[in-house]
Amino acid sequence: MEMQLAELRSLTARAENRRTETGIPRVAMVQGAIPEHQLAAVYEPMINVILSGWKTMTVGEQTLRYDPATYFVMSVDLPAVGAIHPSDTGEPYLAVNLTIQPAVVATLLADMPKSAGGGLYSPAFSVAPVTPDLLDAWVRMLRLMERPGEVAALAPSYEREILFRVLQGPMGWMLRDIAMPDTALSRIGVAIQWIRENFARPIRVAALAEMAALSVSAFHRHFKAATALTPLQYQKHVRLLHARSLLMAGEGNATSVAFGVGYESPTQFSREYARQFGLPPSRDVARFRRA
């Protein structure tokens, strides 16, 4: 595996200190060290392979650490705060990720034996060690950056292979559950999508549970288990992240942005913003621009 990791590190060394597109659909890479709160975002479902350095991801009150030669799977949209760090010997953080499309997973499942889904109230994010087969698929995928004329023909098959290798691993159930319409995780995904699209509106948990075709108690337990947040906490995180992006872009002051994302009290907004990002809005914007 060391030779595969070395080649992947060489291929991703061209990445910038931010998410960098590769020219391959749904595949991106990143290197460097980024201040923690600059990585606060709603993360889309993805498979992320850590090549060097290490990363922490905090969702709700849960924090996971990802080291080299591990990958993590996030199977629903999650508001999270990430922090990345160089290795102890100074190599920069390097990682590559594939955004998951449930439709692609569904076509792959049609060609595979049926398997069990996740257990009751399972989290929708976790970490596992890479395998040589998984790394081999990633090597062939990233080599396409140097042969762009082959991307259209070969990238879809390499993407299916990466997904296949993950489906065979300990977190394969996550991919299966988001691609199958009758699982609790896919139903929670419907509610999550509604919250993301309507975050400024008041929400009723009973209405979300009905949308997910679950009882209120089952919906609440599945939602909290999958996201590490209650539905109202999830909405708050999405509101604050959206507000932060507006403030960083200079699209309004703290008061106008607070009302725009659904807060009725600018004071409450500033208090919750500072709790989430470490500084009140104006000072956080100043810190971001200095960085």
Rank of each mutant, 00 (worst) to 15 (best):
P266R: 13
P280S: 06
R9W: 10
K114E: 15
S186V: 02
P148V: 08
L232F: 14
F219A: 05
P92R: 13
H37Q: 08
A95L: 09
P86I: 11
V139I: 01
A213G: 05
Q233W: 14
A152T: 10
I84K: 01
A153D: 02
A155W: 04
S115A: 15
G262P: 09
R14D: 13
G262S: 09
R9N: 09
E264S: 15
L279W: 14
R160D: 01
A41W: 06
E210I: 07
V59H: 06
I47S: 09
L8A: 12
F125A: 02
F164N: 09
F219M: 05
A206L: 09
A200F: 00
G252E: 11
Y234A: 14
F199W: 04
E2I: 10
E197D: 11
S270H: 10
V205L: 05
P129V: 07
S87I: 11
G252S: 12
N253A: 15
R65W: 04
F288E: 14
D111G: 07
V96I: 13
A228I: 06
V96S: 11
P132K: 08
E159K: 11
L175M: 04
T58S: 12
I100Q: 04
W173I: 01
Q193I: 00
G250W: 11
Y121C: 05
E251L: 15
L144N: 00
H220E: 10
E21D: 13
A137R: 04
D177I: 00
R9H: 07
R244T: 10
P25Q: 10
L8S: 13
V81Q: 06
E21H: 12
H37L: 07
A200K: 07
L279Y: 15
A206G: 03
L154S: 01
P102Y: 09
V76M: 01
L120A: 13
R18V: 10
L279I: 08
L163G: 04
P281K: 15
K236H: 15
T70D: 01
A209G: 04
A69T: 00
E197Y: 00
I178K: 02
S265R: 08
M57V: 14
I178Y: 02
L94N: 13
Q38W: 09
A124W: 05
L247I: 12
Y121L: 07
F219C: 02
G252N: 11
V49S: 11
E21F: 09
V96W: 04
M248D: 07
A225V: 07
V73F: 02
G278H: 14
Q235E: 15
T70G: 00
F199P: 03
G32I: 03
R289C: 08
L214V: 05
I34P: 00
V139S: 01
R147Y: 07
L246G: 06
A110Q: 11
A258C: 12
R196M: 11
T99K: 12
P45G: 02
S122G: 03
S157G: 02
D284P: 01
V96R: 03
E159V: 13
E264C: 07
V238H: 13
L175A: 02
E61V: 10
I192H: 03
F164S: 10
